[in-house]
Design a protein around this nucleic acid. Structure first.
Lengths: 217, 217
DNA sequence: ACGATAAATTCTACGGTGTAGGTTTGACAA
DNA sequence: TTGTCAAACCTACACCGTAGAATTTATCGT
């Protein structure tokens, strides 16, 4: 009758990192809506309340997960490029790949304000590169919100279909929306890298133009 | 002892619309995390399970709320402009105002795929206007995802601070992130219309440029 | 070697949730 | 009058987040 259970007092080797990592695995597998402290505790072979000694509550747990996946973006970054546009492209692509790796965790990133050191460090790298390229200050100041605004919204839309990875573009009624129906062939690569690059180019172009129009600083 | 309660069988005048509207009011007041079928039922003076006769489950309830607030965007649209850029600007601003009116409902819009007739009709208007202006098909096909990608991500970021309306930009550690600290004065109007217009201009500029570069159709 | 202290884990319990399944009521057509 | 049906209610269940206390072990000054 006695199920195998840990004795009190002994360490179970829990810490913020291990817990967050396990939570990410679990959400990747079962989805955010089935995620809960109890399920996570079972996965860790531990009592639910043990988690609360390392993380204050469910909200903090979600923050820890965000931080964990966000850390993947800059992990092992030895090939970081130099120019502001290259850095931005590189960051955007790494960010996208992370989102595709954790499509069910990603909504957390887009929904919750990111103020962790990992997030801020990435932004700092970005804006210093832009500043060194003598982009006007206002353009630089706007860039992070604009870039990650687009990235979050776009990736959210592209990933919010199937349970894993990209969902198909929802089929459209050709008689009710004729113009949109005409365009569907051109949206074939919904969620593809090509599509992503096209839109990223447009956003970067928008930034570049504003910079040129306003002169240098 | 007997609290005032409805007798079974009599109509309570419930329907999808009334329920959704009440739900929006309730979320606007108390926030998404305190929202629940029971609270909603109490607000409506009705048994929780009554709601399920009109709406299949909580997920469908959230969809109904999204639809309700989305409908506000095009409501009473007698001043809709003509050119594609004007239509796009107009739509973006109306969308923004809706988001500020319902900051706690808005995350639903950004998170859940929008396939309701209201959403599709708005997109149809947008793409037909672009097509009539002879923008290249690929550009037109990309525009909705790009525009609403940006709008959703940006508004999500700007609204995810305080419980109502715009939250302040989180303060930054000047010694750890010197460049970002330098720029904070320029981010004073965080969430302002001016800021929104700057970024919207950049996105539209990106689209316009792609169109010019690729010629007409 | 020993007792005090602190830390990590577990146990118990409470109020809340979404919703499946069954029951009651009234309206209306035949 | 009777039969049918939709709308609303009632009951019950499994699950959730977490407050608070109990329990065990490790650590450290003496």
């Amino acid at each position: 009758m006695d199920v195998a259970r840990r004795t009190q007092g002994t360490s179970a080797g829990l810490d913020r990192e291990r817990i967050a990592a396990a939570a990410v695995v679990l959400v990747d597998r079962d989805g955010l809506e089935h995620f809960g402290v109890r399920r996570l505790a079972e996965e860790l072979g531990v009592d639910p309340m043990s988690i609360y000694h390392h993380i204050k509550g469910k909200a903090a747990l979600l923050d820890a997960m965000s931080e964990a996946v966000l850390a993947e973006v800059a992990a092992g970054a030895d090939d970081t490029p130099r120019g502001w546009e290259e850095i931005t492209r590189w960051t955007a692509h790494r960010y996208r790949e992370m989102a595709y790796r954790h499509p069910r965790v990603f909504p957390l990133l887009a929904t919750r304000a990111q103020t962790s050191p990992v997030a801020l460090a990435a932004l700092e790298r970005l804006v210093t590169a832009m500043r060194e390229a003598d982009l006007p200050d206002q353009v630089v100041a706007d860039a992070p919100l604009m870039l990650f605004g687009f990235l979050n919204g776009y990736l959210l839309a592209v990933l919010s279909g199937g349970p894993d990875g990209v969902g198909d573009m929802p089929a459209i009624d050709a008689t009710a929306y004729p113009t949109m129906a005409t365009l569907t062939p051109l949206q074939a690569g919904f969620g593809s890298v090509a599509e992503f690059d096209r839109m990223l180019d447009a956003v970067l172009g928008g930034i570049r133009n504003r910079a040129n129009r306003q002169g240098t600083r």
